[in-house]
Amino acid sequence: MVRDHGRDGHRQRHPRHALSLPAEISGAGLHRQRGQGLTALRAPAALSPPRNPSLNAVARPVTKGLLMSPLSIHSYTFVPTWTTAFGEKAARMASSTGYSHLVIPLRDHAAIEPAAITAMLEKHGLEAVTTANQRPDADISSTDRDIWRAGLERHRLSLRLARDIGARHMGGILYSVFGKAQHAAAEENVKAVAEALALLADDAAAMGLRLALEIVNRYESNLINTVAQGVDMMRRVGAKNLHLHLDTFHMNIEEEDPLAALEQALPYLTYFEIDQNNRGRLDRGSIDFGPMLARLRTAGYRDMIGVEAFSSAISGPEVAAGVGAWRNLFDDGAVVARSGIDVLRQAGFAA
């Protein structure tokens, strides 16, 4: 969706670009045919990864040499947690600093009020991007089938909430519980995730949604820490509406060669998130976003680019504990938001 300022100075909402999601999702891997049960899964087949079929699905138009990707920012950059009241503040600040999409976490289903959120986004000319999570008693990586089924149902409820607030993208650590594990993931855990994601991708497609697996570091998951592992999961599942989400903070920890990892991810990439090494301001830190953003430009990437940051002055106790936001890196999320726009402007992704 493109958002411009109309003659009266107010943001105008333009028609959405529909995602190119087929009614029947096909491909190699575990993805099931409609009408078949949980165990009626196709055998894996060799997969030659095509260029991402939805790469331009939510792209903004090219403007005088700019690749106008939709720009997204996480609500936790501005507020301590998600509530409707905090969401109003986050939406206002995201819109005023130049973003078109706001990340709304679905970690607490009771805090999601679809009607209020839809009105809030409409008011500020934004679209929702959602993230979803798992819990110890509801986890699709579990080999305990009761816990696995609970994880599947938790994600299905998240999908319905995402649909009801007008989102077309649900990402995050969809494949395991967030946090430091006590042991390595086994092949059985990986297979359990692939089976669940095949089913979820089918459900998401029926709602006009796509899924994106955020690749995170070893301290946040034991299952998908590198692009190579993410691509392996893509091949196991084989769903056309399942994609990858890269975050430079995590890449900086896990990838030997971030540019090579980006190259490997490009066929599946729908969300590229810039996030500094200390998770503070984007224009201060050790990560040089320039080479990666330049590669996205030469690849013609026009899907989502996100910004994320955390500070002890803003993050609530649960968020701070999860990401280790123990230091005051900034007092005002708007400063971080503008620093992200500055970085993206220099790379040709923002006006």
Rank of each mutant, 00 (worst) to 15 (best):
A150F: 12
L213F: 08
L262S: 03
I104T: 01
T226M: 11
L55S: 04
N252F: 11
D144F: 13
K64G: 12
D146A: 14
D8S: 15
L161S: 03
N252P: 11
T63C: 02
I104Y: 01
I112T: 00
D275Q: 10
S26C: 15
R297Y: 08
A111F: 01
N222W: 06
A350P: 07
D4R: 12
S48P: 00
D332S: 12
A186V: 09
H245A: 01
P291H: 03
Y268P: 00
L67R: 12
I117E: 07
S142A: 14
L344N: 02
P15H: 15
N278L: 09
L266I: 10
Y268T: 00
G300P: 05
V193Y: 08
A128C: 11
S54Y: 00
N217Y: 05
Q229C: 08
N241H: 11
A111K: 04
A45T: 15
D139S: 10
I140Y: 05
A90H: 00
A23E: 15
R235H: 11
K191G: 13
L211H: 01
G306H: 01
V193T: 08
E220N: 05
M93H: 11
M68A: 13
W148K: 07
R218H: 13
N225R: 10
V323L: 05
A18Y: 08
E122C: 01
R42T: 10
N217S: 12
A204W: 02
G290A: 15
E273V: 14
L246D: 04
A94N: 05
A347I: 12
A138W: 07
R281C: 06
E214F: 01
R338E: 13
V79Y: 02
T131A: 12
F86S: 00
V319Q: 01
I287R: 07
L159I: 12
D332I: 14
H5T: 15
F86L: 04
L102I: 07
Y99N: 09
D146Y: 06
Q36W: 09
A321W: 07
F78L: 06
P15Y: 13
D332W: 13
L152I: 04
H124Q: 14
A57W: 00
S286E: 15
I215Q: 05
G166Y: 04
A43V: 03
H74E: 07
D146L: 13
L19Y: 13
K180R: 14
F86E: 09
H245P: 07
P317W: 03
S142W: 07
A212V: 09
S158T: 07
L126Y: 02
R107P: 00
A198R: 10
D146W: 06
E127K: 12
W148Y: 06
S69L: 02
S158Y: 02
I305R: 03
S286P: 01
L242I: 14
P61W: 07
M292G: 10
R32P: 15
I215V: 14
G171M: 09
R284A: 15
G98S: 08
E256V: 12
L293G: 10
D203G: 02
L329D: 04
G65C: 00
H5P: 08
G179A: 05
D283T: 10
A116T: 04
R51P: 06
S75V: 04
R210N: 09
I173Q: 07
